[in-house]
């Protein structure tokens, strides 16, 4: 069992920031991460709205945060799978698939979110041979071809417009009769002559031999099924919080987001949560970084007051540069 003061679950913007603050405050800190360090920042081609940093690649921002956290002594264990959690007791612990286990006196949950998939037949089979989740990565494979974009939010509409630089025709398939996106994004897509719309419809199946050849589409109001020949499908249907494995351990709302107070505390003493996984409206790198900061400071305060129960609580907590 590796023992720490603070354990952080997830190494995205929120977790790395919490790691930076906690290890700078001399807390013995470990971040345990299931996927790639940096989380969704790595999925972001360009970040142009992180103040103080000119337009940069998402992975560069992620790398800098990782280096910063490590330079203050934060340990990072990535690409691992947690198989069991015991987070309610004063000493919190997790066990990994490979048998290693970690314990700490406080935990910050920062598992973020992931792109939602359609979960329909053929989706796994044609990933990389017709189905993509990244227009900037794979757009040029569809030069001169016809593609479908599934979704009706900002990313679906923006990516559809971007794909018109490559594809001869882009068809947006959306389940509702209206879009959930900024007005300027909707206008730009509607004014693009290469973009067509199939509204109130959902994909039901991906069909092909070695590569994707066609899809089945259901028109929801009538239930009519039709087939459409297509070279590629790009899927942008929103994000899901990565909280499945935490259900039952912590209070979640109806969207499976973790409920916290303004100090990022959960109702369980010593358990905090931050970033895209919490119940909130705006999900950005800046908001994840802010949440991570607050969670780390709250956790430090929790550990300090717990260790010196008799000492009076400071009137306010200030952090020096």
């Amino acid at each position: 069992m590796e023992k720490y003061d603070l354990m952080i679950i997830g190494a995205g913007a929120a977790g790395l920031t919490a790691g930076i603050y906690a290890s700078r405050a001399k807390l013995n800190t470990v971040i345990i991460n299931e996927g790639v360090v940096g989380g969704q920042m790595v999925l972001t081609e360009e970040v142009a709205n992180y103040p103080g940093v000119e337009t940069t690649k998402g992975y560069m921002l992620a790398n800098t945060m990782k280096t910063q956290a490590k330079s203050f002594g934060c340990k990072i264990r990535s690409n691992v799978k947690i198989t069991s959690y015991a987070l309610e007791d004063p000493v919190k612990s997790v066990t990994l698939e490979d048998g290693r286990s970690f314990s700490a006196d406080a935990v910050i949950l920062t598992p973020g979110g992931r792109p939602r998939s359609l979960n329909i037949p053929g989706e796994d089979q044609f990933k990389g041979t017709g189905i993509s989740y990244c227009a900037t990565c794979d757009g040029d494979f569809f030069t001169g071809k016809e593609v479908i974009v599934v979704g009706g939010g900002n990313s679906a509409l923006e990516e559809a417009v971007a794909l018109t630089n490559f594809a001869t025709k882009v068809t947006i398939v959306h389940q509702f009769d209206h879009f959930q996106a900024f007005e300027h994004a909707i206008k730009e897509a509607q004014n693009n002559p290469k973009i067509e719309f199939i509204m109130e419809s959902e994909l039901r199946e991906f069909i092909g031999d070695t590569t994707l050849e066609k899809v089945t589409i259901e028109h929801l109001p009538t239930g009519n099924m039709s087939e459409m020949n297509i070279d590629g499908v790009f899927i942008f249907v929103g994000y899901l919080p990565n909280t499945e494995s935490l259900a039952g351990l912590v209070a979640l709302n109806e969207r499976n987001e973790i409920i916290v107070d303004p100090d990022m505390k959960t109702p369980i003493p010593g358990m905090f949560a931050a970033g895209d996984c919490i119940a909130k409206k705006y999900r950005q790198v800046t908001t994840a970084v802010a949440d991570g900061t607050i969670a780390a400071l709250s956790a430090s305060e929790f550990l300090r007051t717990r260790n010196t129960k008799a000492a009076p609580k400071p009137a306010s907590l200030s952090v020096q540069g």
């Binding site: 790639v36 790595v42 081609e45 990535s78 690409n79």
Partner: peptide, 15 residues
């Protein structure tokens, strides 16, 4: 390339 689909693969290879 240095894109979101590739970096996780390089990262895993490093480990």
């Amino acid at each position: 390339r240095m894109g979101p689909m590739c970096i996780p693969v390089y990262d895993t290879m490093e480990e």
